[in-house]
Amino acid sequence: MDIIACIKRVPDTSEADVVKIDPSQKDIEKDRLAFKINDWDEYVLEAAVQLKEKLGGTLTAVTIGPKEWDEVLRRALAMGADSAIRIDQDVSADDPHIVAIILDKVIRRLPYDLVLFGAQSEDFGSGHLGAMVAEILGIPHATLVINLEAEEKKIHVQRELEAGTLQSYTIDLPALLTIHTGINQPRYISMGGIRRAMQKELQVMSLSDLGLSLDALTPMVKLEEMRLPPKGKEAELITGAPEETAGQLAKILKDAGIF
């Protein structure tokens, strides 16, 4: 089975207070942030590698971004991807539709039975991209996939909905899936593995190599402004001996109508 995994690099914003809006008010300040692979994409790679280990075939990892984005591709190569392609263009703040048009051009050049995306990204979180690419490619897709089992010509998937409700589908290949966290336990990628992956091929392409130009790609939506949420009411810290604080806490809960 030939698989294409589309992955991205995101800032580590697990601590809310490190996030600051830059003067353009259309992006966050990234200079001093650490970056990582998008959380969902770790599960994408693990699912892809498990399928490849089971069924054989090829695994190609694709990303769109500047040179620093090679690091997520190196992780993919260390995990077991055969090849990796980076489209050298910063589209991180662009409308997902533009990203989808570019990915469509890349994917069409490659052999594939299955295209995998993360269900969403940690930074912009639109969750649109996979479905858009499937539409442009004209192949079936399923989003929020929490379980998958592949045969030669079809794939059985389960989607996770509200309250853990599961939907099962059998989809003809080629198909596109967006993968949810929890589908597997992504393995640890050792630094030794990443160093060894430096030997593997990493192809860099430009938009013009794909017959595209950024000017010709018109966004369907345009970002107007980014801002941080207003600060809420401050937390109340109750201090003192447990026999006193327990009573105070009980009173607060009672006054709030919780008891």
């Binding site: 995990m79 336990q185 393995r187 640890y188 990628i189 050792s190 030794g192 593995g193």
Partner: peptide
Amino acid sequence: MVERGEIPSAAK
């Protein structure tokens, strides 16, 4: 185990 990527999740 590290090279195989199979370590406890807290160690990862």
